[in-house]
Design a protein around this nucleic acid. Structure first.
Lengths: 218, 218
DNA sequence: TGCTGGATAATTTGATCAAATTTCTTGAAC
DNA sequence: GTTCAAGAAATTTGATCAAATTATCCAGCA
């Protein structure tokens, strides 16, 4: 397994690891992210860590504090509104574009991923759920072949990531309508518009969850 | 003037310089951006240059080629469509948000900046025009107090930047309706919706220009 | 056309310097 | 005598640079 990693630069690996920590809510909002701390935790050199932090700062996943430190941002209500607006503007479009290009094999793959999502919900494993949900959305979005919009979506998910941690408390989302299933049905029938609509409602649902969690914790 | 710069970290200065080079079309699309080259050109150290490149890569202003080099991206027609879609989704919203918060003093400032835009057009100085046009839009967007959307807009302008160079060829845009003036009128009357509409048409006009330029040069 | 060696550039590490935060001490006031 | 606060020392952390390593590119040759 070392033979593969040897080809990937260390700063890419470090970036991916830090990104996933943020994306899956392993870092608390407001927690300081220090270079030295990551060197110790990830066992990486200084330069790779610096670059990972810079990249994620540029993507909005980390917030520079006035002094020259960075921290995990705490999403305020206003920022959540902005993220929600942008996600609702970008991601349904990605879904619509993807809708016209999906092959049956890709739909099968998405259905398999959605199975993982449901299993994670049943097992009550939030970490798995967040990873599988992310995989589902981005496997779909990647099919749109729209790299610019894909990058924007990635940035927006990163901004929302740390706050998903707050959802841990109110983790009873099985009652909500399963919009992934609706999306899959739209894919099978080749209805790109319906697919976009399902994704739009899925996003809205997720944002409402986070908004309620933030309201409760404040 | 050195007393002020001494407080700003070198990697910030390097980032700003490289960003402006991209933003104002000083770098040709497809041109390779090397670390060593920037060390020589900007007279900066290696670490600041690396970080500037990473940041701009994360923002989509530079594109990593499979080998470990980066280059200024050439906007394809598909990518331009994506940038246009995202800009039209985000920036009118920023204008609308700003519309409700603009003070008369801020509007005066915007009018002054627009004067610079017009003077640059009359003088036929593209570089000044691009800088002033950028300043006009972002002075307005900053008033929206929506940092997330502002970051997205910045990223989108960076992606479009290098291709504005192509507009040099067909630099006769005085004939187009002056949408900045319309926008200023909407600001004065406090009509946020009209302001958003003016900005939307301004973006559309700019995108059409770039699209035609790309079509001609291909 | 395919391969090999030199040149070039990117990656990574470690060392050094500068800034910021924390802690400790000292002095004064209550 | 105790407590609070201001200031200084020490520690932690970030910024920058230079050298060593490694991967990639390119030219010459079989």
């Amino acid at each position: 397994m070392d033979a593969e990693e040897r080809k990937i630069p260390s700063h890419e690996v470090t970036y991916a690891r830090l990104r996933d920590m943020i994306l899956y809510g392993h870092l608390a909002p407001g927690a300081p992210v220090t270079i030295q701390g990551l060197i110790a935790d990830l066992g990486a050199g200084m330069t790779p860590v610096r670059e990972a932090i810079r990249r994620l700062t540029a993507e909005g996943a980390l917030l520079p504090q006035g002094n020259r430190r960075v921290a995990v941002p705490q999403l305020s209500s206003e920022m959540l509104d902005q993220v929600a607006f942008a996600r609702l503007a970008i991601e349904p479009k990605l879904a619509e574009l993807a809708g016209g290009r999906l092959t049956p094999a890709q739909i099968d793959r998405l259905e398999a991923i959605d199975g993982k999502v449901n299993r994670a919900i049943e097992a009550g494993c939030l970490s798995d759920y967040l990873a599988a949900n992310h995989a589902f959305h981005f496997a779909l979005y990647k099919a749109a072949e729209a790299p610019v919009l894909l990058d924007l979506a990635r940035s927006l998910w990163l901004r929302a990531g740390p706050s998903l941690r707050a959802v841990i408390a109110r983790y009873g989302r099985e009652t909500a309508p399963d919009l992934h299933r609706e999306a899959l049905a739209a894919m099978r029938s080749g209805d790109a518009k319906a697919l976009a609509g399902a994704i739009e409602r899925d996003i809205q649902q997720g944002v409402d969850h986070v908004r309620q969690s933030l309201a409760e914790s404040s």
